[in-house]
Amino acid sequence: MATPFRLTSQTRLLLTHLLGDVNSDHYGFEILKATGLKPGTLYPTFARLEEAGWIEGRWENIDVETTNRPARRYYRLTAHGSTEAAAALERHAEKAALQAPTVLGGLSS
């Protein structure tokens, strides 16, 4: 089944990271550091995944006065998103494995 958005290498990188720890909340800066993505790529991808229902964003539940800082926005995969992301990555990996090097060598590997 096709994904509701383009499964670019950046999207795959983000999904792989989120799938690495599905039970934790993730935030922008942490993902930027972990994946090497740029903000100009990450935030539109968040928006795309959220729109598709693969991830959900929520504001951090903290006492602003105690922590002395505003609440962060957290993201995590939804149950639907986890299943779809794992399946999409698996499909992509299978497709890539099938595209064995031909005359053009490692072009599609």
């Binding site: 290498s9 795959r12 990188l13 792989t16 599905v22 986890s82 990555l89 992509h92 990996a93």
Partner: peptide, 11 residues
């Protein structure tokens, strides 16, 4: 494109 073997960490 990362190599398939490097990129997919499935749960």
């Amino acid at each position: 494109t990362p190599k398939p073997s490097q990129e997919v960490v499935l749960v």
